[in-house]
């Protein structure tokens, strides 16, 4: 079925026939087998799939951390791989799978990223971000000494340091307790609404996806199975909720 990938000025991301194959000691792994989708401006777009479906690989290629084997990625209408540095100034990412420098304080880590993105008046920006995530008291603590939940929130501050137009979030609430996760979701929704920011989001938390995402791409074995709104996905599959759709997809009960 695949996603709508017609070139459109309103599309912030256009991914076409993206493939990624790893070859290690003669063993070939196809992480992405030609995925295509488009994300519109101001949309919160979810990418769902079981572990190994290709969600993180897609995000990692989209932020320039991984070179695809073939295919194209256009961001803000430009070829990402030809304008990588320029485009990355308007993007950012937070992931549950990477840390900031553990031997540096929260403030110093954020200062480094503020300089990377040439953020004006970065001291105020850092103070505002820490306050909005309720972690101002952690500014002078070493990142290595923080709990998983605190690190996640610092990572989210890092991802918003340059006021990105496009924010990629790889399981951003994975290590947060329900109350903080809810606060973070509200904050992301507010930021998205206030700034018309585009957000691409991966998660294993289906209620969270239903709450936040305008549209969702279901990935299975490195391919896009379907792209639609969470409500439509539930209706099309006559399922009680998105979680049931996800489980059926994971079990291979849905046709490709």
């Amino acid at each position: 079925m695949g996603g709508d990938c017609e070139s459109n000025v309103e599309n912030i991301i256009e991914v076409k026939n993206l493939k990624k194959t790893y070859i290690s000691r003669g063993h070939v792994t196809e992480a992405l087998r030609g995925i295509s989708f488009a994300v519109k401006k101001g949309e919160i777009f979810g990418i769902l799939g079981v572990n190994g479906a290709g969600k993180s690989t897609t995000l990692n290629i989209t932020i320039g951390l991984l070179t695809p084997s073939s295919g194209t990625v256009r961001i803000f209408g430009k070829n990402f791989f030809q304008h990588e540095s320029e485009l990355k100034n308007q993007m950012n990412i937070a992931t549950a799978y990477a840390d900031l420098a553990g031997n540096l304080t929260v403030y110093r880590n954020l200062k480094i990223y503020a300089l990377m993105y040439n953020v004006p008046n970065y001291k105020k920006k850092i103070a505002d971000l820490l306050e909005s995530f309720g972690i101002s008291h952690l500014a002078d603590k070493w990142v290595g000494d923080l709990s998983a939940g605190e690190k996640t929130r610092v990572n989210l501050c890092k991802s918003l340091i340059n006021d990105p137009e496009l924010l990629l979030l790889d399981e951003p609430t994975a290590s947060l307790d329900p109350s903080i996760a809810s606060h973070v979701r509200r904050l992301i929704l507010k930021l998205q609404k206030d700034r018309n920011m585009t957000v691409v989001f991966t998660s294993h938390n289906m209620p969270e996806v239903e709450e936040m995402c305008d549209r969702v791409a279901l990935l299975h074995k490195g391919k896009v199975y379907m792209v639609d709104t969470p409500d439509s996905l539930v209706k099309i599959h006559t399922a009680p909720d998105l979680e049931e759709v996800f489980i059926r997809l994971a079990k291979g009960e849905l046709e490709e």
């Binding site: 951390l65 990588e84 990355k88 990477a98 420098a101 553990g102 990223y113 990377m116 993105y117």
Partner: peptide, 18 residues
């Protein structure tokens, strides 16, 4: 190596750093 040990390469190279 310092950035590899602290799993910070991800964040560093997701910036516009060449």
């Amino acid at each position: 190596l310092e950035d590899a040990w602290t799993r910070n390469l991800y964040n560093l190279f997701s910036t516009p750093l060449h």
